[in-house]
Each structure stands twice: as C-alpha cells, then as structure tokens.
Amino acid sequence: MDKSALHVISLVSVGAHPTSGRPRRAEQDARAVELGLQLAGDNLHVLHAGDAEEPALRGYLGMGVDELHVLAQPPGADALPGLADYIRESGVQLVLTGSQAETGEGSGMLPYLLAEKLGWPLVVGMAEVESMSNGTAQVLQALPRGQRRRLKVRLPFLATVDNSAPKPRQSAYGPAQRGLLDVEEIDVVIDEVFAGAELTPAKPRPKRLKVIKAKSGADRMKAATAKASGGGGQVLKGVTAQEGAAAILKLLVEEGVVR
C-alpha cells in the first residue's frame, strides 16, 4: 500500500481512566490513531471536536502526530454537524473512530450518524486493512472471541475500531509538548436531548439470582439451601491417565470448546 496516496482522518475524543476517571487519551481512539499512522503515516489527520484546552489531547500528539485539528466546541454541544462538514470537505478516503466515547453518553452512535450523514459505508470493529485498490478496500472485521471476518468495502468509508485493533503506541512527552493544536471555531449546535439527561455514578448491577419458581415450601427450602453450583470442583485422584483425559474431554465437549 502506498502510504502517501492514502488520506486518513482519525477522530479522537478525551477519555477517562477506568479507575480514577481522570482525563486521558481514550483507549479506542488511540487505537484509531495507531491504525491511521500505520496506514497513512504522515498523511494522518487527527481531528477532535470539543475543548481545545484539555491537556489530555496532547496524549495523541505524543504518538508522533505533528498537528491536531480541533473544532472548538463547548461541552454538551453536538459534534456531528461540524465533523460531517469538515470530513466532507477534506476529501479523505478513510475515517477512523473509536467505538464509543469514554465520557458523556457514550452511546456509540456518532460513527453511525456520521456515516448516514455522509452517505458512506461503515465498517464496525475494523481490526486490519488488508489491501486497498481500485476504490475498494479489503478489511478484516473483528468478531467476538478473536474471530475475524473479511469484508470488501468501497472507498471512501468510515470504520470504527475496538480493542481488537493494533495496540496504540506509547505517547511520548516531548512530541506531546511540541505538537501543534490547530483550533477552528465552528457553529455550536447544542444537544438538547442530552442536556436534559442526568448522569449519575454507575450503580453496581446486582448479579442475577437464580429465580426459584417453586410451588411448595419444601422446594423453596431446598433451592435456598442447595449448594451454589460450581462451588467445589470434582477432583479425580488415583485414576488412570486415560480416565482423567476422558473426563477432561467430556467437559471440553460439553462446554463446546472442542468440536
């Protein structure tokens, strides 16, 4: 693939660390930048819509991007119109985003809406671009459990990356400090729906209890006092290797991992 011919935009947002909640470069967005760097090298355009003053944005610059374009917006504004206009005018072949923001609503809708607005095809969970030729790209889509599906998609297209995409490179302090922030003011469209919604700290979800539909008191008592399944495994001691292997295989087949 010719790196110079390909123009890629990676959309980035400000993330939040899962345990401390402090701002950082978002994990999936960093992967989008990494994939973009691998595909387009210096032709990668990194775009952010939001607060240009956020220091965490420099985390992306630290990955070796010279410049980060910011469409300046106050918090709570709808990033979609500005991004769509910018991308339409940029003439790129590929736009990469993370699957879901780490702050705010995090509905993961942005890439879908963007693709709808641009009229571009959308590849969800792209893991790798295998080849690009004749206005089409052959890509690998990540499925659960490390599985992959090969897709052919016509350019230009939008792709989201999730945790199956290449691991982002380390963000280095020097380039992060030197990198430029190219800030552009755009019209602000306030997201009315989200403005009315209320964010609260996540409540831990209760583990689903086994529902006991017992008709008699004895059944309920039995279910309540029964040992939780899985507690205390079966130990095969003093069996032959063959018996042991057969027992293991039986479990593996039951679990469906040996086919």
Binding site: T19, R22, Q170, A172, Y173
Partner: peptide, 20 residues
C-alpha cells in the same frame, strides 16, 4: 520522553502513574 519506546509494560505503567 522523545521516542515513546519504553518496552513491555513500561508504557502502561507510566500511563497508570499519570492517571492513577
């Protein structure tokens, strides 16, 4: 600081130190 080339778990540890 310049290359961002701390090997293995280095990058993760440094990121953690910054964030947590």
């Amino acid at each position: 600081l310049e290359k961002g080339a701390t090997p293995n778990k280095g990058a993760e540890v440094l990121e953690n130190l910054i964030a947590t």
